[in-house]
Amino acid sequence: MSVRLLKKLTAALAVSVTALTATVASAEEYPTRPVTIIVPYGAGGTTDISARKLAAMAEPLLGQPVVVENRPGGSGTNAMRSVSAAKPDGYTLIATTSSPLFVTPALRPVGYDPVKDFVPVLNYSGPFHGVLVKADSPYQNIDELIGAAKSGSALTYGTAGAMGGAHLAFTSVSRETGAQLQHVPFDGAAAATAAVLGGHVNISLVPAYRDLVQDGQLRLLAVLDGTRDPDFPDVPTLKDAGYDVEFPSVVGVVAPAGTDPAIVSKLEQVFTQVATSAEYKEFMAKLNQPVRIMTGEELGETIARNLEVYRALAKEMGQAK
């Protein structure tokens, strides 16, 4: 125990000394010890596995071990809160997703501000969310679907959970068009997919639909993202189809606010190099996950813009507290 205590003391001492002398030198030498990437979900999920691969491939480029730590809970907000409070020295990063970045914070107090408390590093993935119906359903395209929901019969749609981005996006569609769309939240995207396959709900808004669509069990009517899914280039986005709403799905790395810009740009450069490599793309293809690169700046804009949109949406729905 005394060793640990001693370590902590020396660490604290070292920090105060470096803080006093100069912060310039630290960015040059960074990293001098292992870098930790927090994953706000459980080990073994796609976010976790893709972050682990990213970390493993970044190790030789950074010259220091990159450790992945899982801190699941509170649909990602617990980990975000603890990283926002971490020391902004570039040694604690978080690989995070849309929901704790701009969906949940718009809906309820989470204990951190996604814009003010973090510096975005880069975006490297983000699964496309689709509007899916069963293959034998009468709706051939998104307009028919909304049309049917407008003319009387209420349609039910399943999502991966209450108050997710997909839920808010469709609520907005139903408000705009007057379509009767009843939300039914499930415990995870898998359960929502099963529910539409079994005909318990009319529609599901879920990711990871490729094989089931290609097998002819489900029909993809639209994607919620801002861009089309490269696997299904003929399927429109909601925006293309004339509904002014999108749910951009991001998976990116962010650091606590106050991290030295030189360190952030070094990290951005290293991770971008990894994420654009053929090896990483091949790995992600196996996981059925796209590689979608955005610079830190673009990611920051996406977060800020969508946070505003979702806040407004939530306020409109009487959710904001």
Binding site: G44, G45, L212, D215, K286, L287
Partner: peptide
């Protein structure tokens, strides 16, 4: 869910195919 991830990593994507 974790086993599913492992299958995918090995290129054996679970699902209808």
């Amino acid at each position: 869910a974790v086993i599913l991830g492992a299958f995918m990593l090995q290129g054996l994507a679970p699902g209808p195919f």
